[in-house]
Amino acid sequence: MQEGLSEIQNQAKDDLAKAESLDAVEQVRTRYLGRKGGIINEIIKAIPGLPPEQRSSTGKSANMLKQEISKWIEDARVKLADKEQTSEAKEMFDLSLPGEHKPYGHRHPITQTIDEIKGIFRKLCFDIEYGPEVEHEYYNFDALNIPADHPSREDFDTFYLGNKRLLRSQTSTVQIRVMEKKKPPIRMIAPGKVFRPDTVDARHASMFHQIEGLTVDEGVSFSDLKYVLTLFAQSYFGQDVKMRFRPSFFPFTEPSAEIDISCSICKGKGCSVCSHSGWVEVLGAGMVDPNVFETVGYDAEKYTGFAFGMGVERLTMLRYGIDNIRLFFENDLRFLSQF
């Protein structure tokens, strides 16, 4: 009986090898495994008629064979199905079709610039500080050594809310708030919104963003200011950026400086972005005025420091060649999704 089974096994293998269609495979299946008249089933049915000592082993072998042939048939089907599909199908999968897209959210370009600059100053060991946007006149002017008759206090330069309240016109306010709270050493930047009643045009908005910086310690000098701001400019604008420190005037720093970088558009040759000067102004800075230290109760003989400020919109416009500041606050998604 055992020999008979192995013969059937070989025969089934041959038959399957010759079956070249799914129909042919089905015929093979019926011949061997069919419920009525299938060869294996017939054998199993015949088992009760066998001598008792053969029944068990034959049953086992027959079942094993049944499983084996089932598996071969399944394999043959899969193989043929694949083959038939490829030979019959007229459709072709177009590999050049575009991928399917999930919506991708963008951060506002101003946020991206602020984040990048925060990152640079974090590397330089600066803390990040914030201050209120609605301020008392004291923090926006008095404490910053801005005299009572200074033009920036007039109502065409600052938004007033009554009761000595105003919308801060500069992030320098945060300098004072931090120095009131903490003792030196201080090393911080303060990003945030500022407001000025400028007539809105391509270069002016009534709301924009600044980043203020402050370092106070014993022995801080103008050299340190140049060093830190040079590292910043190299990091933000690239290693080969050229810098120019020019004397300027701010009420809360003395000496004061404005800092130009070589124009990245024309590489210093002169273009409309740099008004044909080859230089673009990017930062205001200076050594903290002793009057400011006095106001916050620091010993101006013992401590010195430097402060700086920059306009975020301006830096972003320079970086991407954006020519209209209004784009930032219109929030047209066709604009925002480019960043």
């Binding site: 974090r122 060991c125 600066f126 803390d127 990040i128 050493p185 090393r187 370092t215 310690d217 022995g219 801080v220 000098s221 103008f222 050299s223 340190d224 140049k226 060093y227 830190v228 040079t230 120019r244 420190f245 020019r246 004397p247 003395e254 000496p255 004061s256 400086a257």
Partner: peptide
């Protein structure tokens, strides 16, 4: 400031004594 301005900001060296600190 008057002296720094006339002497030239460009003559002030780019160097620093401020060290690292934990933010």
């Amino acid at each position: 400031e008057e002296v720094a301005r006339v002497h030239g900001y460009d003559k002030i060296p780019v160097k620093s004594n401020i060290g690292v600190k934990l933010t």
